[in-house]
Design a protein around this nucleic acid. Structure first.
Lengths: 338, 338
DNA sequence: AGGTTTGCTGAAACCGTTTTCAGTCGCCGC
DNA sequence: GCGGCGACTGAAAACGGTTTCAGCAAACCT
């Protein structure tokens, strides 16, 4: 099979017009709004010409003239984080249903990439932006916001004043901790990725502290993932007062914590309980299954899209803060210790 | 904080030109190739004007004239498949490094969506296309191929004659089965998602059959995922001759099989061995860890991008078939039974 | 000095659409 | 029989860039 040669000249509106013996204007009307204006005879000629030539309008040119690209941008800090993927799936589905396409940019957590990718998305005239990153470059974001609507996902950016879609973190943390308390756990660790600068992590940590403040009989501490997580967990476990449990603030923390615990040689879930925020497909497979708080990721993605859509349609309301609720899914990792 | 009002008029090249007291042409040269042509004095004036006005060129307009959008499209059958994500990450990284942006479309395995998303990507004048789908609509793909380079990932499409990047399936299957044989397993099951229509699955199944044909002392059968996978696995296990093992043809099959085995009540890995193609983060966590064949997904993504890039730069060679090799990672799920 | 070359610059055309605006035509009422 | 009115249609001007081409100095030859 031979290498194809790329056709240089795509068939254009002018070609169709010529072939049908009408003006470009009529063709434009045919493929756009003004179809009702056209005579039956002309419409038919155009239709045939389009069919014969295989014409497809060029969105770029169309966008240039109309100022509507029907393109949305999504900036993601870590495309390999299952949470991001799940949200992205929600966004993408909603986009598809409304005739938008999605340009995805991954920053790999690099602030410099964040800056460049934002500039790139802007230069493609995306109509709106979904942002799930560190939110360095607040100034850049603020400028961008003068040109197009932005909605943040999961992570707040201070002083930006745009819509936010995320989890009701305090409530979710409460659900998890109440569950642990009820099952008789008395010494807790919150394992989180580095908290600094990520609003959702901070909120979860704060909710953890506050909940502890209201439960004098239960001890708790905070632990960030990192090199010697195993050691630290070991030390904690050795000194635990009463049944202990680990609460993982997200999927990656759950992975790290579970690996660490396993290397520690504890009997998972018999010696130490575990709850994870985010519900990943493999949770049922680890030991007797990991109890989880499922985030409504699909809904989060859809809501984010809806926010954008409403802003694009001219809705002028103060910045919203949509917090969705998590669902507790009880599995074997939190056996009753009472 | 009040709702921002979107600025209607973005600053344009004409604005810069006026502000600097030069022509559009000079500004164009400044931001493009012809910078060397400009006098120091003029360049400086333009630079200042750009800075003062915060000008950013409009890629759409630029693309319209030059015919280069610097946009690549990627069509994915299932965006939630970890394999797809991993490849996509590789592609995205390569794109970023070369100044391209990526438009991602997910078909959710729906042929109709496949058709529409292809049309959409085309209409945005993506310069090239990375396709990882069922490949219905061969005709549409073939037409598209006259306009832009296409590279297939993982899944062949018959009669298309475009580059393909994927796994050396036969070799990978061989590695897995040799490993199992060596460890003393004598009755094997290949668990795969429905094979029909997906070339990589077919190849893996064929390699399985062939390998069996060459190993008379080992029995084997093929099983597709589906409603009663548990039952079927149970029946197989009950009638197994010698130590049995399950070989999962991809990540989703591994998930399904492991869940099924667990519900069957067998002692995982003591009663039945397990090897999975694809290496997922959570494999170490299941029981004593799942032995896996890791696909070089990052490399696959990068190679796919490179293929496209070379074609875009005018390289004319017959369709390539890049098969990368998998790496066997031995964990606890394949204990020695000899 | 006069004719050439060289080196920058700007005017204008163009990319493929949409949209405005000025026709053209048939048909109505008077 | 003619002005007026709708209903369609097409020419042309955008949109925001790039690129061609001509112009015009200054510098370079004899």
């Amino acid at each position: 099979m031979s290498t194809p040669v790329y056709r240089t000249h795509r068939v254009t509106m002018e070609d169709v017009a010529r072939h049908a013996g009408v003006s470009k204007a009529s063709v434009s009307r045919f493929i756009g709004e003004g179809r009702g204006l056209l005579t039956e005879a002309i419409a038919e000629r155009i239709e045939n010409a389009i069919g014969a030539l295989g014409y497809r309008p060029n969105q770029m040119a169309r966008a240039l003239k109309r100022g509507r690209t029907r393109l949305l941008g999504m900036l993601v800090a870590d495309i390999r984080n299952p949470y991001s993927i799940a949200v992205m799936h929600g966004v993408e589905t909603a986009c598809r249903q409304h005739g938008y396409s999605l340009v995805v940019s991954n920053t790999d957590r690099d602030p410099e990439q964040e800056r460049r990718q934002l500039a790139a998305l802007r230069s493609y005239n995306v109509e709106g932006l979904i942002v799930n990153t560190l939110g360095q470059h607040v100034e850049q974001l603020r400028q961008l916001q003068h040109e197009l609507p932005i909605v943040l996902v999961d992570r707040k950016v201070e002083g930006l004043g745009s819509d936010l879609v995320g989890l009701a973190n305090a409530h979710a943390v409460g659900q998890a901790l109440d569950h642990l308390a009820e099952r008789g756990y008395r010494d807790l660790v919150l394992v989180s990725e580095p908290i600094l600068g990520t609003s959702s992590r901070r909120e979860r940590a704060q909710a953890f502290e506050q909940w502890l403040a209201g439960h004098a009989n239960i001890r708790g501490q905070l632990m960030e993932t990192g090199a010697d997580l195993g050691h630290r967990l070991g030390a904690w476990h050795a000194a635990a007062m009463g049944p202990g449990a680990v609460f993982c603030a997200n999927g990656l923390a759950a992975l790290a914590a579970t690996l660490a615990l396993r290397e520690l040689g504890v009997r998972l879930f018999d010696d130490i309980g575990l709850v994870a925020l985010d519900d990943l497909q493999w949770y049922p497979l680890v030991g007797t299954g990991i109890t989880a708080l499922a985030q409504p990721t699909q809904a989060i993605g859809e809501q984010a899209f809806q926010c954008l859509l409403q802003r694009l349609q001219g809705e002028r309301c103060p910045p919203r803060d949509l917090s969705l609720e998590a669902q507790l899914i009880i599995r074997g990792s939190t056996p009753d210790r009472t």
